[in-house]
């Protein structure tokens, strides 16, 4: 049972959480840029920005849903350790706003979770103009939410990480 130390165990889970969230961040950012400034037609090979937004956005929807759920589950699991070993010292040190940002992060993650089925449906019906606005706004919302979750998680890890 003592193959790895307790901090190492939780750090490994934290890294899994980080790795999947990076994939999610990349997929959502590509998709959001593609939906906000779509490439109408490419006359030539295009630059970096053009190629960045010229991705087949509908193909990302299922992957985004799966990665959001996996990241959510991993985050929920390491939250147990965070609550007892990290949050208490943060409170004792009086970092109230840092604590507030973490609570906000958990709320945003849950709100994102309940939006996933609608997000998936709108992308699966990307040809239907009825869903255009909802699909665009939901995609940008999830992308901004993901960046917020990522940055807050990163800063919190810097405040008092597992390792």
């Amino acid at each position: 049972m003592d193959i790895i130390s307790v901090p190492t165990f939780w750090t490994i889970w934290l890294l899994f959480h980080l790795i999947v969230s990076v994939g999610l961040l990349g997929a959502l950012t590509h998709q959001a840029v593609a939906v906000m400034v779509p490439v109408r037609k490419m006359a030539g090979p295009g630059g970096f920005v053009t190629r960045f937004r010229a991705v087949p956005a509908p193909g990302y929807a299922a992957a985004v849903c799966v990665m959001w759920v996996i990241t959510f589950i991993l985050g929920s699991y390491i939250y147990i350790k965070y609550r007892t070993y990290i949050r208490i010292p943060i409170e004792q040190a009086g970092y109230w706003k840092t604590q507030g940002f973490f609570d906000f992060k958990e709320h945003v993650a849950s709100i994102g979770l309940v939006l996933l089925p609608a997000y998936w449906f709108f992308w699966k019906n990307a040809q239907d103009p009825e869903y255009d606005t909802a699909r665009k706004v939901l995609t940008v919302f999830l992308c901004v939410a993901c960046w917020f979750l990522f940055i807050v998680g990163h800063v919190l890890n810097n405040t008092r990480g597992f390792a």
Binding site: H107, S110, I111, V114, L115, P117, A118, W120, F121
Partner: peptide
């Protein structure tokens, strides 16, 4: 109907 209801009720309910 399910996904739209789920999203609307989910956000409100949370």
């Amino acid at each position: 109907t399910f996904v739209i209801t789920f999203a609307v009720v989910g956000v409100l309910l949370y």
